[in-house]
Amino acid sequence: MRFKKIIGKIVIYTIVTAGALFSLLPFLWMISTSFKTQREAIQIPPTWIPKVFTLDAYKMVWTKIAFPRYIYVSFIVATFTLIGVVLTALLAAYAFSWFKFKGRETIFMSLLALMMVPVPVYVIPLFILVQYLGWIDTYYALIIPWSVNIFAIFLLRQHMRGIPKDLYEAAVIDGCGRLCFLFRIILPLIKPAVVTISIFNIIGSWNAFMWPLMVVNSNNMRPIQVGLAYFSQGESTNYPALMAASFIAILPLVILFFLAQKQIVASYAKSGLKG
């Protein structure tokens, strides 16, 4: 019996380790290649650890291509989108959960219906609108249409509804107004939900591709993923440079992930449980 159990454990560990290696190997291959010379990168049989270790690929990506600029653009876009999403969601969720007004449920239900419409359905007219506003190649196009998020409103509303109502009376007695109540009392209580929407948003903006591809023409305004995509078309066989560029493009989120992996995984897990 005990013997059987040990065998079972060994089988399980073997399978999950093989799966984990499968998840990891493309990244290891990417990192390893990024330090190789082009000649070694395409050599057969391939090497796992570079025989000649070189930083040429990184130098090329960092100096010849506008990669620092791409990262800067993405950083600005991610930051301001996040501020917009959190602020609009906080205010709207507050209205939906703490105020009674006519049409509240109707408006909320329409928002949920609007959330069900996939982005590709309206991406072309949205592009025409942004073009009409003269926002092509500007931060406005990259930030403003995405600085509101219905899912964020929904999630914050769920959390705000759970807060006991008598807290408000206590706050009023202390001379705290309605906005003061939102930012001083409610916000600290729903911090985990705010962290969750922030995580989804940062990852979403950093990895956004289709929309920036449409609204940005100049090299100077390309966010990281679009810059990387055009770079990969221009240098389709310079593998060390391609891998170095890809690695740079994923690195900020990988670092964020290792710093906050518990929160990130928990956020995704919870987003599924609601369903």
């Binding site: 591709f209 990281i224 993923q225 995509a229 391609l242 891998m243 890809s246 493009a249």
Partner: peptide, 16 residues
């Protein structure tokens, strides 16, 4: 480890 590909961008992953 299993979660790592989820947070990386589709663009980078496609190139690799």
């Amino acid at each position: 480890i299993y979660f790592l590909p989820v947070i990386t961008s589709m663009v980078a992953v496609s190139i690799v």
